[in-house]
C-alpha cells in the first residue's frame, strides 16, 4: 500500500559542503528528486506522481465508505492514523542513521540539507507514502480505541525502516500494521463484508486502481492475482456443485477487489521481475484460497500477503530485475 522512501547520506570531513548524500541509484526515495535535480539539473519524473492519484482515490473511497456503506468509522480514528503516520515517517527520516553502501552515488549536500528547521530538508513527497498507509489502514482496519490505530500505524511505518533486506523493506507496511493489530491487540478487526457486492464499487475500484497501476506499470500483479484466485474459486465451485452465482457473489466482493488493486500492488514490496511477480501472486492467491475455505478465516487475504512477503526476497535473488522506482517506473537498469 505504500512505498519506501530511502535516503542515505554520510558526513565527510570537508568543511563546505559538510556532507555527501549517497543516493542509491535504484532506491532513491524521497530525496531522489531533490538531489537529482540539484546534481543533474533535470527532473527525472514526468507527470503527476502516481501516489498522488492513490491518495486521491483512497480518500474518495474512505469518504464513500463512510457516507454510503454505513461504516462504524470515527473521524478521530482517521485523524489519528494520518497524524501518527506522518509523524513516524518524519521521525525516522530525521533520526535514523543512514545506511551506507558501495552502490551509492555521492552527491554533495549543503548544510541546510541536514540541519535547519523541521521540514526544510524533506520534500513533500516524502509524506505521500505514509499518507497512503494511513488512508489504507483507515479503510481496512477497525479499532476499538484510537490508540490501537496509533500503535498499528506506528508499527506499519516503522516496519519500512526497521525490517529491511538489501535496503528493500520486506512487508507491505499497511498489511504489516493490520496483521500485528489483529494478532496482538484485543481491539482490532477487519470487516470483509463492508463494501458489499455492488457492481458499481467493483467498477470504481477497477478504474481508479487501473489508473494508478498503469502509471506504475504493475497491472500484471493485480490481473494475475485475480485470475489465479478466480480460477481456484471456480474450481472449488465446480467441485462442490454450487450454482455459479455463489462463485460470482464471492468474486464481486468489494473488499477483494479493493485489496487486489490497492494493497498487493505496492510496487516497492512486490518482486522486481515479471516471472517473480507471477509466482508471488499465485502464492498469495493460493494461500488466500486455502485460508478462506479450509481454515475459515475472514482475514485470509491479509495473512496470505503477510506470509508471502519473505518470498519476495528469494524471488528477487533468483530472478534478477530492476527495482521499482516511483519516478522511473518503466525501468532503470539495475546496478
Amino acid at each position: 500500500m505504500t512505498a519506501l522512501q530511502q535516503v542515505s547520506f554520510s558526513e565527510t570531513s570537508t568543511e563546505e559542503p559538510i556532507a555527501t548524500a549517497i543516493i542509491q541509484t535504484s532506491l532513491p526515495w524521497p530525496l531522489h528528486m531533490m538531489l537529482n535535480m540539484r546534481s543533474l539539473a533535470q527532473p527525472p519524473r514526468a507527470g503527476i506522481d502516481a501516489r498522488l492519484y492513490q491518495i486521491g482515490f483512497l480518500s474518495l473511497f474512505l469518504l464513500l465508505g463512510i457516507i454510503t456503506r454505513d461504516w462504524t468509522l470515527h473521524p478521530e480514528i482517521i485523524l489519528t492514523a494520518i497524524v501518527t503516520a506522518l509523524t513516524t515517517q518524519y521521525l525516522f527520516l530525521k533520526f535514523t542513521p543512514p545506511p551506507n553502501t558501495s552502490q551509492n552515488l555521492k552527491v554533495p549536500l549543503t548544510k541546510g540539507d541536514l540541519g535547519g528547521s523541521l521540514l526544510d530538508n524533506l520534500p513533500i513527497d516524502a509524506f505521500y507514502s505514509p499518507m497512503i498507509t494511513a488512508l489504507g489502514m483507515s479503510i481496512l482496519l477497525r479499532v476499538e480505541h484510537w490508540w490501537i490505530m496509533a500503535l498499528a500505524v506506528t508499527i506499519a511505518i516503522s516496519s519500512k525502516f526497521l525490517i529491511q533486506f538489501n535496503q528493500k523493506h520486506i512487508f507491505n507496511p499497511g498489511n504489516f500494521g493490520i496483521i500485528i493489530a489483529l494478532l496482538f491487540s484485543h481491539g482490532a478487526w477487519v470487516s470483509p463484508g463492508q463494501w458489499g457486492e455492488s457492481m458499481w464499487y467493483v467498477i470504481l475500484f477497477f478504474i481508479c486502481g487501473g489508473l494508478v497501476l498503469r502509471k506504475v506499470g504493475r497491472w500484471d500483479t493485480t490481473i494475475a492475482f485475480l485470475a489465479f484466485y478466480l480460477a481456484l474459486e471456480a474450481g472449488r465451485n465446480l467441485y462442490l456443485g454450487w450454482t455459479w452465482d455463489v462463485w460470482s457473489h464471492r468474486m464481486m466482493s468489494g473488499s477483494l477487489i479493493m485489496f487486489s488493486f490497492f494493497m498487493i500492488t505496492d510496487p516497492r514490496t512486490i518482486p522486481n521481475s515479471k516471472i517473480s511477480r507471477l509466482i508471488w501472486t499465485f502464492t498469495i492467491a493460493l494461500l488466500t484460497f486455502v485460508f478462506r475455505n479450509y481454515f475459515f478465516m475472514n482475514t485470509a487475504v491479509f495473512f496470505a500477503l503477510f506470509l508471502s512477503a519473505p518470498l519476495t526476497l528469494i524471488l528477487d535473488w533468483v530472478f534478477k530485475a530492476d527495482r521499482f522506482d516511483w519516478f522511473q517506473p518503466t525501468a532503470i537498469k539495475s546496478v
Binding site: T72, E144, A188, W189, T243, V246
Partner: peptide, 17 residues
C-alpha cells in the same frame, strides 16, 4: 434466492459499541 446465493458467514469482532 436471487440476492443471497451464498450461506451466511459470520465473524465476531471486538467492537463493544
Amino acid at each position: 434466492r436471487d440476492k443471497f446465493p451464498e450461506d451466511l458467514m459470520f465473524q465476531d469482532t471486538n467492537n463493544q459499541e
